[in-house]
């Protein structure tokens, strides 16, 4: 397997790892969003979906550990690349300038690390119950964990919603650059599709932002609310 190590150690190999783990994490974001959007289908839909995820048992743990490993590899490789990039220019220019460097490209490591911090907080809030309330005791009429009420209660707190939107905006910026870059990393660049590829990153990032942001906004507007008797 020496060729695998050789590939991973190379500059391009590290980029393939960044792109493929990034695509897998994007897959998770899409799946998570589809799950979350069931908030609009009512308490029963969300709670039974949550119950079915829990019923996966050991498979759920396989998915969780898999996600953790993918995210870990994405982050460790990013930091390794950032360190190598810094070492490649030991003496900086006195006069700094650029022609077309975009802010989202320049801040990939920073936005990535802030998103990591937010994900830990997000888990502490909704999954582990360390922040504000322990929601694990919420139960619906059928005796299932009441995820629906948990989300509505959570987003009723203004700073929970505000930090959620800020983190989403950073995630969208990260994806704007990341998704389009993944095409280039895998060598998918053709004059015929250049514009489409350029727009794919911003388009997917905007859709994900709108999808995720719709939930706290719906909670504020009362479109999604706790119904009497639940």
């Amino acid at each position: 397997m020496s060729w695998v190590c050789r590939l991973y150690r190379s500059s391009l190999g590290a980029k393939y790892v960044m792109a493929s783990t990034g695509v897998l994490l994007l897959g998770f974001l899409i799946a998570h969003l589809l799950g979350n959007l069931q908030m609009f289908a009512g308490a029963d839909a969300v709670n039974s979906y949550a119950e079915s995820l829990r019923a996966l048992g050991p498979l759920l743990w396989v998915a969780r550990i898999g996600l953790l490993v993918i995210a870990g590899v994405h982050i460790v490789t990013a930091l390794r690349l950032a360190k190598a990039n810094e070492a490649a220019r030991p003496v900086a220019y006195v006069k700094q300038a650029s022609r077309q460097v975009k802010p989202q490209t320049k801040t990939m490591v920073l936005s990535g690390l802030v998103i990591l911090g937010y994900v830990v907080y997000h888990l502490a809030h909704f999954t582990w119950g360390f922040v504000l309330h322990d929601y694990s005791t919420l139960v619906d009429t059928e005796g299932r964990h009441d995820v629906y009420s948990m989300v509505v209660y959570g987003f009723q707190c203004w700073w929970v919603s505000a930090s959620y939107l800020v983190a989403l905006a950073l995630l969208a910026l990260h994806l704007c650059h990341g998704i389009t870059s993944a095409f280039q990393t895998f060598g998918l660049n053709h004059a015929k599709y250049a514009t489409a590829i350029k727009l794919t990153g911003p388009a997917i990032a905007t859709l994900l932002f709108l999808g995720y942001a719709s939930i706290p906004v719906a909670c504020w507007l009362g479109i999604v609310q706790i119904l009497e008797g639940t």
Partner: peptide
């Protein structure tokens, strides 16, 4: 890689 050049971040600069 062995010459110590950096990696591509698609800055397009």
């Amino acid at each position: 890689d062995s010459e110590g050049f950096g990696n591509c971040s698609n800055y397009l600069e």
